[in-house]
Design a protein around this nucleic acid. Structure first.
Length: 455
RNA sequence: GGCCCUGUCGUCUAGCCCGGUCUAGGACAUUAGAUUCUCAUUCUAAGAACACGGGUUCGAAUCCCGUCGGGGCUGCCA
């Protein structure tokens, strides 16, 4: 039987990086086994689901390159099916109507907690006339006296067991026509013939309930694998208050390949730490996915991102940085020191005149007049520079070096020159910058610096 | 509170199943050094962990028991 997996996010918020990681592992698993990876929008909560969020999910996955097979499906379009099956369970006595109010249920829960009893609603309407009267919510009839252990063999955690008696008669429909999450996912997964349910660890305790639904419906139970969660640095669940958590929040700074790489190695140890999702798919083994949650370490993401940025061609870089007009010669200078794409603007001096205080031109213990005479010497050299020559960079460096040797201190020449070109205390080698911006611009900037010192 | 998952450097982890080769390896981060006008890159080096307590054993990160910590679920959310 061929593998069929799915990602089933609910469109009630922006696509979270944790969901994206889950999507990646589903994608890898499908890829590895030549199976199918589907995208299903779980919009059973019509109050909170929006088209905008659905669009965001699609955009996020597309950006990451996690393409799905076939058309997107939606729970909302499966409503008639839920209604029919809910009706079937109701008529078979496997489900019933619960007429308790939310206040009553809440009071029950509170007293159970106070008495250190397991929290569950064993509904008094289950076997009574009331349970057959339409109205109220629909619950699955679960035998609370059973000593059955509901178990499943998690593909990464091994056998997980729950006592059925602790479950209570849990809800499966807001009404006979309106399915709740547990019921909807089970029906959807069964209808789509999903073979492996790969989802977050937060669903482990939902699994026994869903198994009971599969059984009540007479559907085959798929295999389950519960993936570890992503944590914030304080080890709590990663959420908005920890900064960026929506996939598209990362778009302005990170390459999708880097994010995918990061998400991949965060829950799995591959042979290499730097690899594409295609590489990952080759060696992916579901049983080797880590069991414990990992902290989302932005430092490692930054490092990975810098590695991917270094591999970019000039054209690619200009496109992803959204700066199509910067000179090609500037790109290698930027790429070598970039961690986040949006930091490219720190290198604006490569295409714009810098602005700085004249005092910055002063080299260590030397004074400003030393800077002025050094710049005058540099100006002369620059003026005579054969910038069109194939060896222009070496040529300039050599003449500058000999001037520096004469003065006995390289910094005396290079420091003011670099400041004149970049206007910054920390910046790349001035010879490289001069080559990137061209002889004319370099001369202009040196002249501007000389002028600054004069006033 | 109840149930479930989980616990090796600051972080991600290798090793654990099949005890000795582990004075616990790698990566990111940090610190120091080399190159160097500054930054960055690159290279070299250093510090840094088996949650705790029992037990089994000649020997335990590895096996057993307990404790503690972290997380999830406990919804007419998903």
């Amino acid at each position: 039987m061929s593998v069929k997996v799915r990602l089933a996010p609910s469109p009630t918020g922006f696509l979270h990086v944790g969901t994206a990681q889950s999507g990646l592992y589903n994608w890898l698993f499908a890829r590895k086994h030549s199976g199918k990876f589907y995208l299903r929008i779980e919009d059973t909560d019509r109050e909170r689901s929006t088209k905008e969020y659905e669009q965001n999910i699609v955009e996020s996955l597309t950006w990451l390159g996690l393409t799905w097979d076939g058309e997107i499906t939606r729970s909302s379009s499966n409503q008639p099916r839920y209604q029919a099956l809910l009706g079937k369970l109701l008529s078979e006595g496997k489900a019933f109507y619960c007429h308790h109010t939310q206040e009553e249920l809440e009071a029950e829960r509170k007293s159970q907690e106070a008495e250190k009893l397991p929290p569950r609603h064993v509904c008094g309407h289950k076997h009574s006339e009331k349970g057959r009267e339409a109205g109220g919510i629909v619950r699955l009839a679960v035998d609370e006296a059973s000593d059955r252990i509901i178990s499943f063999d998690d593909e990464l955690r091994g056998r997980v067991e729950f006592k059925q008696a602790l479950l209570g008669d849990f809800s499966i429909g807001r009404s006979a026509a309106d399915a709740l999450y547990h019921f909807a996912v089970v029906v959807d997964d069964a209808d789509m013939e999903i073979t492996h349910v790969l989802r977050g660890e937060d669903h482990i305790s939902n699994t026994p309930k869903q198994i009971l639904i599969y059984e009540a419906l007479g559907f085959p139970v798929p295999k389950f694998a519960h993936l570890p969660l992503l944590l914030a640095p304080d080890r709590s669940k990663l959420s908005k208050r920890h900064g960026a958590t929506a996939v598209l929040d990362f778009k302005k700074d990170y390459l999708p390949e880097a994010l995918v790489n990061f998400l991949g190695i965060l829950g799995y140890t591959f042979n290499s730490e730097l690899l594409t999702k295609e590489d990952m798919a080759k060696e992916f083994d579901l049983a080797k996915v880590h069991k414990s949650s990992a902290v989302f370490d932005i430092q490692k993401l930054n490092w990975l991102n810098s590695q991917y940025i270094k591999k970019l061609s000039s054209a690619e870089f200009k496109r992803v940085a959204e700066l199509p007009h910067i000179p090609d010669a500037a790109v290698p200078i930027i790429i070598e020191r970039l961690e986040k794409l949006s930091d490219t603007r720190d290198f604006a001096y490569l295409w714009e005149k810098p602005d700085y205080d004249a005092g910055l031109l002063k080299w260590k213990k030397a004074d400003l007049s030393a800077a002025a005479s050094a710049l005058a010497a540099v100006r002369k050299i620059l003026d005579a520079w054969q910038a069109e020559d194939a060896d222009a960079e070496i040529l300039l460096r050599n003449t500058l070096d000999s001037a520096a040797t004469e003065l006995g201190d390289r910094g005396l020449v290079y420091w003011p020159f670099r400041v004149a070109l970049t206007g910054k205390e920390k910046s790349p080698d001035p010879v490289q910058v001069a080559c990137a911006i061209g002889k004319g611009a370099a001369l202009e900037r040196v002249d501007a610096a000389i002028e600054k010192l004069r006033t």
